[in-house]
Design a protein around this nucleic acid. Structure first.
Lengths: 166, 166
DNA sequence: GGAAAAGTTCAATTTAAAATGAACAATCTC
DNA sequence: GAGATTGTTCATTTTAAATTGAACTTTTCC
């Protein structure tokens, strides 16, 4: 189709700075820079963008854009807009902090927390199965402490979400 | 001096697993693995360890151990024990979650937050100086939102610390 | 049906971050 | 104060992670 709206190419100073802002942000969270670029451009754009828009304006590869969008959708930070031309999809950011934090916690934090709790259980078994080891009391104390940390995290995360939502 | 206490070499299965646990933990926080190894070994050791102990038992370089200890001290996660032999220092972990979280927030989170606020201020100036740009209203709205996020973070962090401390 | 367009996947490459280790500075010991 | 011991620094190397781009699948449109 040739009814294309004029697509700006390159980024204005303002857009670049906003994108920069988000690149810094995602770096703290341990996410790749491209995630920050994509979300940043969507955030600063009035209207949904297609994958090709992201590729053209950010100067990144189609692969990066596709993978980045995938992760952002999984995080719930980006959703497909209802504007669809044929097969072409358009994407827009979710700009509610509550959703963003919730998605991050659900996708990035909870899985690690869960695997940590699994390891903790293994460790507790190991200590129980230690013969009359002089260190086992010390070890048990340490593991108890780790258990408390983990519990604390499980309590704090929902509170955090609640606090950030409104 | 040859009054050395016998130093175990290598790591027991139990110790390795605890260290693993912490390596995972620091990875979420975006800190290098060696930080997790060092803190993990200190955490699982009954009694302070010297830099050379860390090098020998973890099999890491002196440089890594030195840098890692430095960062851990800055984070307030490790402190010098009062047991000092001559020039040799011994280190022990701070095992209070409150301290650990507080140190991380102070050293890793707040600086980023501060620089983010600086960038936000720049962006606001840019929008104000935009001529009769049609997008300036949209931009102003977006920046307002970012400002609210930043404010929310400034409120939540102290609460988080309070909640984790007891 | 077939050419064009859109999107995904993944092996290969690039890039950024962390670890190394050798040189150095500081401190202790005799 | 000479030699040994402890710890730091930083240029180089290594390692892990992110990005690329080409091959491929799916869908659309005539």
């Amino acid at each position: 189709m040739s009814g294309d709206v004029d697509v700006e190419i390159g980024l204005s100073d303002f857009e670049s700075l906003v994108i920069d802002f988000f690149c810094d942000g995602v770096k703290i969270l341990g996410l790749p820079k491209s995630i920050g670029e994509i979300y940043g451009l969507l955030f600063v754009s009035q209207g949904a963008l297609s994958l090709d828009d992201l590729v053209d304006r950010l100067g990144i590869s189609k692969g990066s854009a596709s993978q980045g969008l995938k992760m952002l959708r999984e995080l719930g930070a980006v959703r497909a807009s209802d504007a669809v031309e044929g097969r072409k999809m358009y994407y827009e950011p979710d700009v509610e902090l509550k959703q963003l934090v919730g998605g991050f916690i659900k996708e990035q934090v909870r899985p690690h927390l869960a695997s940590g709790e699994g390891k903790l259980a293994d460790l507790k078994k190991m200590v129980e199965e230690m013969p009359g080891d002089t260190r086992s009391d010390f070890y048990a104390g340490r593991l108890e402490r780790l258990g408390r940390w983990s519990k604390r995290a499980r309590v704090v995360l929902p509170l955090l979400q609640k606090f950030l939502g409104r």
